Amino acid sequence: MSRPPTAAQRRVIDAAEPVTGRLRGTQAQLAALVERGLAFRHPRPPHDHFLTPAGHRVRDAEPAREQQAAPAARAEGVFAARTGGEEEPAGPGSARLREVRGAWEGLLELRRMTGRDGAVDRPCDWERTHLVQAAALALEAAGHRPAGPDPDGPGYRVRATAQPEAVAVREPDPAALRCCAATLEGAGWQVSAHGEPRTGEKYLLASPRRA
């Protein structure tokens, strides 16, 4: 891409659905994004447009801009997977369950559309650049309970690590931790169990599987 997107095109990119990258805009705007390699037109009806991996990178390329937009996004109800430790952890309400189910189905569709062979058993580029959110979504979609604000309370916590393609998953209940491992493996992640040298606390390291 030789030229940056115009302001109007940038607004279309920024307004894409968080997980699937589905775009809304005029036909001229969408066609221009396709020409620049930032979007593609789905071959099946209704022929919606979606961000390509390059389009996702453009949207995620300005951390300061994302931080400024975050309060507005939360106010508008943009979906975010629960990573554990939130002040207001999600309850099992039907509205939240529908949101999680819809986000997971959208992620599987993104895998199908962007994978070389249309498979949905391997994480896509979006997941590799949003490791914590992707792993948390897989866990929440499978029915695991995110931890609340109590640091010693039950529930999973997904956190970034110093490793570039791995997240740490902690859960004080050993049986629940094993279930988290099984869920992530079934969702296309490589998982290994570890223990803290000083405390012996068990945790998981999870990375998106490539093949």
Rank of each mutant, 00 (worst) to 15 (best):
H144R: 12
R10W: 13
P89V: 01
G186R: 00
P174K: 03
P45C: 02
A211I: 14
V158A: 12
T20M: 10
F50R: 01
Q163N: 11
D60V: 08
A95R: 08
V12G: 15
S192M: 12
H130K: 03
P208I: 05
Q163G: 11
V120M: 05
L107Y: 06
E66I: 15
H130D: 08
G106P: 00
R157H: 12
P45E: 06
R111Y: 04
L204M: 00
R98W: 08
L108P: 02
T52V: 09
G25H: 02
V132N: 05
E86P: 02
L107G: 09
E127Q: 09
Q190T: 15
G77D: 05
Q27A: 14
L38T: 07
R145F: 06
A103F: 03
T183A: 06
R98Q: 13
P151N: 09
R59V: 03
T161K: 08
L110P: 02
P43Y: 01
A141Q: 06
G200D: 13
G186D: 07
H130C: 14
Q163I: 05
R209S: 15
A75P: 01
R116D: 11
G115E: 14
R116Y: 02
A206H: 00
R98E: 15
P146L: 07
T129Q: 13
Q133H: 09
P53L: 00
V167A: 04
A103N: 02
E76K: 02
E87S: 08
P63S: 13
W104C: 00
T83V: 07
W126H: 06
G186S: 08
A28N: 01
P5R: 00
R3Y: 10
D121V: 07
P63Q: 07
H49W: 08
D48T: 10
K202M: 15
H47L: 07
L205I: 08
S192A: 13
I13H: 03
